[in-house]
């Protein structure tokens, strides 16, 4: 009896010892030198893996930061200047201060402004729906309204407004990661400087049709009348293809253009209400969700969690969704 116990102990311990020695040598032989700086930088980064920096994830960004000679052009939109400053300290490199950005919705064609021309039925996906007549309204440039952008947002910073049919960006949650910009087939989402005191002015329209036609299908479409161009003292507005575009770099937020725009396609955000006129309908400004919208948002988050769980369980669908999407 004792003998058996003894043999067992000796055999197992020697087996363990031998394995440990083998493991030690293998680990030694195959050791991969990694720059400790990469670890340090990754530690500082927000670990959201959103891809807003243009790299597939935070690790890849850290590697790129360490490898780069000049990191002034690289930026983490989620962490912002604080994080980049820390990164700069670790790497001992110059970091450029960058203004924070936010996603804006460049369409104000809500249900009341933009009449439907057909009833779309099929997959709830903006890209697919827009293949048919460019969406269910007469404006082939406007928001399709099926929420690809909301679906793409990893930060729960967007939701579809039930009343207007347009997406809304939540200012305090948006980190300007660019996901919605990539997701939108109509290029309606754009990253815009958050602006002084969070104030910003932009043209909320993408319609390149001539004025009359654009107006026919949407009452708040930009007609390209160039009134704003005449009004702007800073040369910040230009009109191409009957569509006005504001250059945020030049814009001094004077709001003159908002006053002259007859079709209310220029939006002013977070300004005090004007005294001499009624405020413009601003889908972007509504920050509180209705009850039903809140419920939908909850469901969406729940679904996403479920979807991700489902993926790891199903061995057949073995692709890494993060990488697949981001590398595209």
């Amino acid at each position: 009896m004792n003998e058996t116990i003894l043999t067992t102990i000796i055999t197992l311990s020697s087996l363990g010892a031998v394995s440990a020695i083998i493991l030690y040598f293998i680990a030694k032989k195959f050791h991969v030198e990694t720059d400790p700086k990469i670890e340090a930088v990754e530690e500082v980064l927000p670990a959201t893996n959103c891809g807003g920096c243009g790299f597939p994830g935070c690790r890849a960004f850290a590697e790129a930061l360490v490898a780069a000679d000049d990191i002034s052009s690289m930026h983490c939109p989620v962490g912002g200047n604080d994080v980049m400053k820390k990164v700069g300290e670790i790497l001992g490199a110059e970091v450029e201060e960058k203004d924070p950005y936010i996603a804006v919705v460049k369409c104000s064609g809500s249900f009341e402004h933009r009449k439907k021309t057909n009833v779309y039925e099929g997959a709830s996906n903006c890209k697919i729906a827009s293949l048919l007549y460019g969406g269910d309204t007469g404006c082939a440039y406007g928001c399709v309204g099926l929420g690809d952008c909301v679906e793409s947002c990893d930060f729960d910073a967007m939701y579809m407004d039930e009343k207007t049919g347009l997406p809304v960006v939540l200012e305090d949650k948006c980190v300007a990661c660019n996901a919605c910009v990539v997701a939108c087939p109509k290029d309606i989402m754009e990253l815009w400087p958050k602006g002084r005191k969070n104030r910003r002015i932009y043209v909320a329209c993408m319609n390149e049709e001539k004025g009359g036609i654009a107006k026919k299908y949407c009452s708040v479409a930009c007609t390209g009348c160039e009134k704003c161009v005449e009004e702007c003292r800073y040369d910040a507005i230009s009109v191409t293809n009957s569509l006005a575009v504001i250059d945020p770099e030049k814009c001094k937020l004077c709001r003159k253009c908002v006053d002259v725009c007859k079709s209310n396609s220029i939006l002013e955000i977070n300004f005090p209400p004007p005294k001499d006129r009624a405020p413009v309908d601003r889908p972007d400004r509504k920050l509180a969700m209705t009850k039903s919208e809140e419920k939908m948002q909850e469901e969406r988050i729940l679904n996403r969690v479920e979807k991700q769980e489902g993926e790891s369980e199903n061995p057949q669908q073995n692709t890494n969704i993060e990488q697949g999407e981001k590398s595209e």
Binding site: K116, T117, N118, V119, Y120, E121, G122, I128, L131, L132, Y133, D136
Partner: peptide
């Protein structure tokens, strides 16, 4: 009345 559209 608006017509329904969907893909084939």
């Amino acid at each position: 009345k608006l017509l329904t559209v969907s893909h084939s």
